[in-house]
């Protein structure tokens, strides 16, 4: 994905994660800005299924050729599914950060945390600062 893009139907964490909330469950990923800053992702180190995630705490790592970066949990919950396809093609995180490049699916323990997250417009305002 060559151009910056922040879909309106997602919520955003200021550490450059996105969340797609569906009732008590959610999908997490990193934003266009995060993948662009990191460069080509060559390795994704996922959490194990069942891991309890705490909002604002690191839960996974993404690595480019030269750098490693923690991924911060935008909300709290338990990992129900990991995007296994990323072990063979981590570059999906760059090519389709909001689609095929999703990282984990989570059962939310505190769905109300969604209210603390940013809208697409608020997140872009943060990036422009």
């Amino acid at each position: 994905m060559a151009e910056a893009n922040y879909p309106d139907d997602l919520r955003y964490h200021d550490q450059h994660d996105w969340v797609r909330v569906e009732g008590d469950s959610a999908t997490f990923g990193i934003t266009w800005y995060a993948q662009d800053t990191l460069g080509e992702v060559v390795f994704f180190e996922p959490p194990e299924g069942g891991t309890a995630l705490t909002k604002d705490q690191p839960y996974a790592e993404v690595e480019s050729v030269k750098a490693v970066s923690d991924v911060i949990a935008p909300m709290s919950g338990e990992v129900t599914e990991v995007n296994d396809a990323l072990s063979d093609s981590p570059e999906q995180i760059n090519e389709d950060p909001y689609g095929a490049g999703w990282l984990v699916k989570v059962t939310l323990s505190h769905p109300e945390e969604a209210e603390t997250l940013l809208s697409a417009a608020e997140y872009q305002k943060l990036l422009d600062r």
Binding site: G39, E40, S64, V65, K66
Partner: peptide, 11 residues
């Protein structure tokens, strides 16, 4: 310059 397009492409 550490990279232009990407380290892997340049490599």
């Amino acid at each position: 310059p550490v990279l232009y397009e990407g380290i892997r492409e340049e490599h």
